[in-house]
Amino acid sequence: MHSSVRDVSGVSAVITQYGRKLVTESKPPLRILVGKPGLDGHDRGAKIIARALRDAGMEVIYTGLHQTPDMIVRSAIQEDVDAIGLSILSGAHMGIFPAILELLGKQDAMDIIVFGGGIIPDSDIETLQKKGVKKIFTPGASTVEIVDWVKSNVSGRGIPASE
């Protein structure tokens, strides 16, 4: 089980910001790491998703560009996130997703959900889902669809997902 000390002041700031909803639900916001692995610099999608998840009340950590799988997994554990969302448009997805899953396994952090999006052919999506990637979004997916999926499929620390 991965764990880290949570930044208490950060939590209260979030509760103030999203005040009522969170207090009544007494559930901390989901923490999502949006990662941009590899050399590819096309970050429009990653930034839109980061922004949409944040606007939906989640705490978003965006890694910035040119991250190795190792850097992404280290950030995810340090930041104690509930899920990692990766944006890959370079065609390197078949190398990167499995590398990240393997590193999470080694760190005993398989409870962190991995999802992603990019220019990824259907046949590769199937293979990646078999390996443990929970969901792959392809071009044309709306931010609403992605936010809804995250809400339904990612559970906050110790709290089961609503579906």
Binding site: G38, L39, D40, T68, S90, G91, A92, G95, I96
Partner: peptide, 15 residues
């Protein structure tokens, strides 16, 4: 990066 760099893994000649 040259093709033999660790950063090139999976990206050589792809795009």
């Amino acid at each position: 990066y040259d093709p033999d760099s660790e950063y090139s893994l999976g990206e050589v000649g792809r795009e």
